[in-house]
């Protein structure tokens, strides 16, 4: 709430970054996950980890329609921090390790302040937060691939997607060097968006009526997952297939939910 006041009190109009995920385009290749892990220096998986103890800011769920073979359909749902404007994890953090950046609308996790109580993970309905259960270890030689713009996290703290905040800072520094205060739309794009071969991810300023993303948001096929919780996520999903929409979203007034397998 404090941060929102700051946004209002500031005369300049800051962007409010958001994303639209087109579920009809996503083929589940996983490039986004890999690009994300590399960009953000996520700790490499080891044989000890499983799919619920490893760190993957960008995570792909495979959702079936539950029908037998000839009618069987599946959809891939990339799930990551939904950058809620009414941020449940921010309110619960006892020591202000989560912040909503007034400059970008990005929800930041500050690992240096985090003491690993994991209350935010319980608060997040999207399971988009990850805890460093292990000391991060980069295999011999792999440390050369580390991104110098992003600091790796230590064991015992929580981390999550921040729309490649390192890229935003870099882009801003570059713009500042050129004497500009505003970023152009193509100047700052998260790694996942950049890496998606299907163009399923659209990123941009939600408050800019001319941006691609804000036009997509207005589309009736675009929706928020679990939007009824009132957390005001800035990540939208889009599909024209009605079964997909039913399977990935729990509408308040929908009839009996179809049986789905995760």
């Amino acid at each position: 709430m404090d941060t929102r006041n700051k946004i209002k009190s500031d005369n300049r109009k800051h962007p409010r970054y958001g994303m639209v995920v087109d579920l009809d385009r996503c083929k589940g290749c996983g490039s986004c996950s890999i690009a994300c892990a590399v960009e953000n220096n996520q700790q490499p998986a080891t044989p000890d980890m499983n799919n619920r103890t490893g760190v993957t800011w960008m995570r792909l769920y495979k959702v079936h329609n539950g029908e037998p073979f000839p009618d069987s359909r599946a959809v891939f749902v990339p799930m990551f921090c939904q950058q809620c404007d009414d941020t449940p994890c921010l309110y619960v953090c006892p020591q202000n390790a989560v912040e909503l950046d007034p400059m970008t609308g990005i929800v930041a996790q500050i690992p240096e302040r985090c003491f690993g109580c994991r209350y935010c993970m319980a608060a997040c309905p999207y399971e988009a937060r990850y805890f460093n259960w292990w000391d991060p270890v980069w295999p011999e030689g792999m440390e050369k691939t580390l991104n110098p713009d992003v600091s790796p996290r230590m064991r015992g703290v929580v981390e999550k997607c921040n729309f490649c905040h390192g890229r935003w800072q870099k882009a801003r520094a570059k713009a500042a060097a050129e004497g500009r205060r505003e970023l152009r739309e193509d100047e700052y794009v998260p790694a996942c968006v950049e890496s998606c071969p299907m163009g399923a991810l659209t990123f941009g300023n939600l408050d800019d009526p001319d941006s691609k993303v804000s036009k997509l948001v207005k589309d009736p096929d675009t929706f928020k997952i679990l939007g009824q919780f009132g957390t005001k996520p800035k990540v939208y999903y889009r599909t024209t297939r009605s079964w997909v929409r039913r399977a990935v979203n729990r509408d308040v007034y929908s009839e009996k939910k179809e049986k789905v397998h995760g």
Partner: peptide, 9 residues
């Protein structure tokens, strides 16, 4: 570290 527990993300 806490990987000695069965808690997860």
């Amino acid at each position: 570290g806490l990987n000695h527990t069965n808690m997860d993300n």
